[in-house]
Design a protein around this nucleic acid. Structure first.
Length: 494
RNA sequence: GGGCCGGUAGCUCAGUCGGUAGAGCAUCUGACUUUUAAUCAGAUGGUCGUGGGUUCGAUCCCCCCCCGGCUCACCA
C-alpha cells in the first residue's frame, strides 16, 4: 500500500489508540472454548424459555462479517472456521468502558466473545456478549456485503479474501479435501501402499507432454519437473510392492485453460496381476462411492444437467464410439484412406501422412469426446499412440487400454502395462523417431526403466485419475481454477 | 500464440456524442437496546489499468504495453 486512503488511515489510527489505552490490538491470550457450529448444535432445540434458564457461557472467536448498530446495543455476525453466529452486544452487559472500545471495532476485525446463548425475538439463536476482546485488528476493508467479491482476478490472486467472503468457495475446498481423503482411504483399504516418487526427474517420462526444466547447481545437471510418476511407480512394482498409489502434482508446460493448470493433481495407481478390465470395475466403484459420499447421490448435477454415476457404466471401443456418435459406417473407419477423407468432411486439417491409429483418435476427439456426458469407458486404443501399454494378444494394432469420459472430458486413463522389455525398447525407439521428426512431446528413452523391466515387471494394470477434474465434477465447478486454491496467473502488474 | 470482450471509489456498478466523474454498500459524524442487505440525517473518499499521440482541453478518440475473462489452437 503505497498511498493510504482515509479508510486505511482510520484503521491504523485505531491501532495507535488501542495501544495508548494499554490494549494489544494483536492479543494472543484469548481461550476459545467452542466453535459457532458446536454452540448451534448444543442448543438446536432449546426455545427461548429454556435458554433463559441456562448458565452456559461460551467463548468463541472469529471475524466480524457484519454489524448492525442501535446506539447502546448492536448485533454482529461472527464467522469462525466452522460457520457463522450472531452475537448481541449491549452496553449494559459489557460496561461503558468496553462498549466504547467495542464501538471502534470494524468489519473484518477478529474478536473473541464470551457470553451466554439466548434467542432473539425473531427466534435466532445468538450469543449475548459478556466480554468482547479485539484479537486481531484488520487494516483493510472487506468487499461489499451484498454483492461480495466477484472479480475473478482478485478472487484468484487474493484467495484468502475469496475464502473470507465466499462461503461457496470454502465449501468447494472442504469437499476437495474430503474427496482426496476418501480416495486415499479407499486405496489403503484395498491394500495399496501410498508412495512418493521424484518430482524432479532426469528423464520426463510416463506421458506425452512438454516438461518444465530446472537446474541443479551442485550436480550441474538439468532436471525436469515430472509430467507423470508412471515409470517410477512401475519400478516399485518390479521391486515387489504389488499395489502402489501416489496422489500428487504433475507439471506440464502447456497452455492454460478452463481445464488445464500447469500443475495439477493426479492419482496414479498400479496393481500387479490385474488387467485393465479389473480397473474398469475398480474405477466405477471408486468414483461412484466417492460421489455418493460427497454429494449424497449417484446422480449429480453438472453445468445444469444431471450425470448418473450409478454403476455399471457404458463400455465402447474407440471405433464403436465413432460409429455411434459420428453416424458413419464401420467399413469407413476401418479403411485408413476412407477415414482420412471422412476426417476432412469434419473440418479436420491433418497431416496427410498421419497414421491410421492417430487419425482415429483425432476423429474421436472431434465427434465423440464432447458427447460423452454420462460416464463411458472407451477401449481399444491404437498401439501407435500408447507407447507404455500392453498390446492386445489377438490384435497387436490396439492396446489393452481404456479412457474414462464424464461430462465430455477425459477423467481417467488406464491400461495393462507393457512388461516386455524388448517390446518396450522398440516402442521407445519409435518415439525417438517421432521426436526426431519434430514431435516435441514424443516419449524419451529411459534406459533404467528398461533395465527394471528386464528384471521382470509382473503382469500389471495401472491408471491415472485427474483429481482436479474429478473435484470439478463433484463440486459442479466450471473451471479448474475454481478447484485449485492458487491457480497459475501471470505476475501481478507492477 | 490468434480472435472477441473487459479494467472507473475499499467492493458492486453507472457515466461522459471530448469540457478532469456519479450511485449503492463500506468508512466517518449524529440519532436509535432485538436487528437480519437494520433504519434515518449529514460528510469524506477517484493520478477513470500503464505509457505515448491527436486536441485549447482526453477517463472518453488513436497507438503501444500490462492484467483478466471467454474462445480457438495444444493438452489431462
Amino acid at each position: 500500500m503505497e498511498e493510504l486512503n482515509d479508510l486505511l488511515r482510520q484503521r491504523r489510527a485505531k491501532i495507535d489508540s488501542y495501544r495508548e489505552e494499554g490494549l494489544n490490538p494483536f492479543a494472543n491470550d484469548f481461550k476459545v472454548t467452542h466453535t459457532t457450529v458446536e454452540i448451534a448444535g448444543l442448543h438446536l432445540d432449546d426455545d427461548a424459555d429454556v435458554l433463559m434458564e441456562t448458565e452456559a457461557e461460551y467463548s468463541i472467536a472469529g471475524r466480524i462479517m457484519a454489524r448492525r448498530d442501535f446506539g447502546k446495543a448492536a448485533f454482529l455476525q461472527l464467522q469462525d472456521g466452522a460457520g457463522r453466529f450472531q452475537v448481541y452486544v449491549a452496553k449494559n452487559q459489557i460496561g461503558d468502558e468496553d462498549f466504547e472500545l467495542f464501538r471502534k471495532l470494524d468489519i473484518g476485525d477478529i474478536v473473541g466473545i464470551s457470553g451466554s446463548p439466548f434467542r432473539t425475538k425473531t427466534d435466532e439463536l445468538s450469543l449475548r456478549a459478556s466480554t468482547v476482546r479485539l484479537l486481531t485488528k484488520s487494516l483493510l476493508p472487506l468487499p461489499e456485503k451484498w454483492h461480495g467479491l466477484t472479480d475473478v482476478e482478485t478472487r484468484y490472486r487474493q484467495r484468502y479474501l475469496d475464502l473470507i467472503v465466499n462461503p461457496d468457495v470454502r465449501e468447494v475446498f472442504r469437499k476437495r479435501s474430503r474427496i482426496v481423503s476418501l480416495i486415499r482411504n479407499f486405496m489403503v483399504d484395498r491394500g495399496y501402499l501410498e508412495v512418493e516418487t521424484p518430482m524432479m526427474q532426469p528423464v520426463a517420462g510416463g506421458a506425452t507432454a512438454k516438461p518444465f526444466v530446472t537446474h541443479h547447481n551442485t550436480l550441474k545437471m538439468d532436471l525436469f519437473l515430472r509430467i507423470a510418476p508412471e515409470l517410477y511407480l512401475k519400478r516399485l512394482v518390479v521391486g515387489g510392492y504389488d499395489r502402489v498409489f501416489e496422489i500428487n502434482r504433475n507439471f506440464r508446460n502447456e497452455g492454460i485453460s478452463i481445464q488445464h493448470n500447469p500443475e495439477f493433481t493426479m492419482m496414479e495407481f498400479y496393481q500387479a496381476y490385474a488387467t485393465y478390465h479389473d480397473l474398469m470395475d475398480f474405477t466405477e466403484e471408486l468414483i461412484s462411492q466417492v460421489a455418493k459420499d460427497v454429494c449424497g447421490s449417484y446422480v449429480i448435477p453438472y453445468g445444469g444437467r444431471d450425470v448418473d454415476l450409478t454403476p455399471p457404466w457404458d463400455r465402447l471401443t474407440l471405433k464403436e464410439a465413432i460409429v455411434k456418435y459420428g453416424k458413419i459406417e464401420m467399413n469407413v473407419i476401418d479403411d485408413r484412406d476412407l477415414a482420412f477423407a471422412y476426417a476432412g468432411t469434419l473440418g479436420l486439417e491433418l497431416d496427410k501422412n498421419i497414421g491410421h491409429g492417430k487419425l482415429l483418435t483425432e476423429i474421436f476427439d472431434e465427434v465423440v469426446e464432447p458427447k460423452l456426458w454420462q460416464p463411458t469407458f472407451i477401449t481399444e486404443y491404437p498401439t501407435e499412440i500408447s507407447p507404455l501399454s500392453r498390446k492386445n494378444d489377438e490384435r497387436p494394432d490396439v492396446v489393452d487400454r481404456f479412457e474414462l469420459f464424464i461430462v465430455g472430458r477425459e477423467l481417467a486413463n488406464a491400461f495393462s502395462e507393457l512388461n516386455d522389455p524388448v517390446d518396450q525398447r522398440e516402442r521407445f525407439l519409435m518415439q525417438l523417431e517421432e521426436k526426431a521428426a519434430g514431435d516435441e512431446e514424443a516419449h524419451a528413452m529411459d534406459e533404467d526403466y528398461i533395465r527394471a523391466l528386464e528384471y521382470g515387471l509382473p503382469p500389471t494394470a495401472g491408471e491415472g485419475i485427474g483429481i482436479d477434474r474429478l473435484v470439478m465434477l463433484l463440486t459442479d465447478s466450471a473451471s479448474i481454477r475454481d478447484v485449485i486454491l492458487f491457480p497459475q496467473l501471470r505476475p501481478e502488474a507492477g
